[in-house]
Nucleic acid binder design. Structure first.
Length: 214
DNA sequence: TGCCAGGCCGGGT
DNA sequence: ACCCGGCATGGC
């Protein structure tokens, strides 16, 4: 079976098992972007607490996060872990947003995908997964998000490319699926759900909906 | 109780 | 071009 066929089958199996995932859980594109930085190597439950702190303090906006003192910001996002480095990364993102797009996400997303992705990657603290998460889930742009779950699931089903770099795995999906923002959105969300609920490290999964493929 | 979580950077080889 | 240590809280 071709990899293209496999990917479609995998998505359909996941969708049937879990239903639509309705990602990203956030009230605004800006919240998505900040959440994408906060969730770096961090449990989403912890990120929710940090986001709640920012909302409660009324500082979850480009203007407020642009002017807030970095130590103060770090205090608010403590529950997300790595709070000092993440405060720095959020400030880097805000400085870049105001220098290049007048502090406006709408203006930022009016730029073309490949150019914007490259520029996002130039921000210290925004790597490939964070950039793609912002582009896909905040900007609704067709770029596939790869994360550790994606690689673990592919690996367990012996579908991980030998060249396993981020861009190689990303191309595996993008080259073998229709360029469809909604599909990219829900597919990645399904993979995260599978990784969270079933496909755990050092444990074989009896109930994995993908086992029919083995 | 230890292991893990929706990564990324910087320095060393 | 890889490899590794550092970053840190909270849930299960």
């Amino acid at each position: 079976m071709s990899i293209s066929k496999d990917l479609k089958v995998i998505y359909e199996l996941l969708y049937k098992a879990f239903g639509p995932r309705n990602w990203w859980p956030a009230d605004s594109p800006f919240e998505v972007a900040i959440g994408a930085i906060l969730t770096q190597n961090t449990n989403w439950k912890n990120v929710e607490k940090a986001i709640a702190n920012l909302k409660k303090a009324n500082i979850l906006s480009p203007e407020e996060l642009h002017k807030i003192d970095i130590k103060n910001l770090a205090e608010h996002i403590k529950p997300a872990g790595y709070f000092n480095i993440k405060a720095k990364r959020i400030k880097n993102f805000m400085n870049w947003l105001f220098e290049n797009y007048d502090g406006s996400l709408d203006q930022m997303f009016s730029e073309g995908l490949s150019s914007l992705r490259e520029n996002l990657l130039s921000v210290n603290g925004i790597g490939a997964e964070t950039a793609d998460s912002i582009l896909l889930y905040a900007g609704e742009m067709p770029t596939f998000v790869i994360d550790s779950y994606t690689c673990r699931i592919l690996s367990r089903h012996e579908m991980l490319p030998d060249e396993g770099s981020y861009d190689d795995v990303k191309s595996l999906f993008e080259d073998n699926l229709p360029e469809d923002t909604q599909l990219y959105n829900d597919f990645h969300a399904q993979l995260v759900h599978l990784g969270n609920q079933f496909c755990k490290p050092k444990r074989k999964c009896e109930e994995c909906p993908l086992n029919v493929l083995l």
